[in-house]
C-alpha cells in the first residue's frame, strides 16, 4: 500500500493533468523519493493506484534515467560524461572517483554510502567537468587543477 503521504503527493500532481495516467512519472519520482528506489512490490502498488498494468508502468519506470529500479546507496553521484566534460577532465575525474570509492560506474560502495552512475550532459559546460551529488550540481572539478576538491566535496554526504 502506498502511504497516505505518498498518495497525497501523487494526487496533488495529478490535479494538473486531464488524464490520470499522465501522473505516472511524477508518481514514480515521488515514491522513489520516499523509498530510495522502485522495487517490484512498489511498482505494483503504484500501478494499482493509477489503474495501469504493471507492464505499462514498468515500461515507463525503465525508460527514464533518473528512476532507479535497483537499490542505490544513500547518495548518488552522477558523473557527467557529456562531450564538453569529456574534453576537459571527465576521464581524470572518473578514475579518481572510482579509485577513492573502490567501485566502478554502476556500483555501490560496501557501506551503502555512495552509488556512482553516469549521466548525460548536465548543461553546465562552461564549468566542466561537473557532477551531481543527489540534487546538487558541483562544477569545475578537474582533479588536475585541484586534486583534493572531490574529497572535500563528498565529506558532507554521509
Amino acid at each position: 500500500m502506498l502511504t497516505e503521504a505518498e498518495q497525497h503527493e501523487i494526487e496533488a500532481e495529478a490535479a494538473h493533468y486531464p488524464e490520470r495516467r499522465a501522473v505516472a512519472i511524477d508518481a514514480l519520482k515521488i515514491v522513489q523519493q520516499h523509498r530510495g528506489y522502485i522495487s517490484d512490490a512498489t511498482l505494483t502498488e503504484v500501478a494499482v493506484f493509477l489503474g495501469l498494468t504493471r507492464a505499462e508502468l514498468d515500461g515507463v519506470a525503465t525508460f527514464y534515467n533518473l528512476l532507479h529500479r535497483k537499490p542505490v546507496g544513500r547518495n548518488v553521484i552522477w558523473i557527467c560524461d557529456g562531450v564538453s566534460c569529456w574534453l576537459t577532465g571527465y576521464g581524470r575525474l572518473r578514475r579518481q572517483l572510482e579509485q577513492r570509492l573502490g567501485i566502478q560506474e554502476g556500483e555501490t560502495t560496501a557501506d551503502g554510502r555512495f552509488t556512482l552512475l553516469p549521466i548525460v550532459c548536465l548543461g553546465a559546460c562552461d564549468h566542466a567537468p561537473v557532477c551531481m551529488v543527489n540534487d546538487d550540481l558541483h562544477h569545475d572539478l578537474d582533479p588536475a587543477a585541484d586534486p583534493d576538491r572531490m574529497n572535500k566535496l563528498l565529506e558532507p554526504y554521509r
Partner: peptide, 20 residues
C-alpha cells in the same frame, strides 16, 4: 522530467507529458 534525451524531441515530449 525524469531524464531522457528523447524528451527534447517535440513529439517524444508530448508522450512523456502524457505519462508514457
Amino acid at each position: 522530467s525524469a531524464g531522457r534525451y528523447m524528451c527534447g524531441e517535440e513529439t517524444g515530449m508530448l508522450n512523456a507529458l502524457e505519462g508514457k
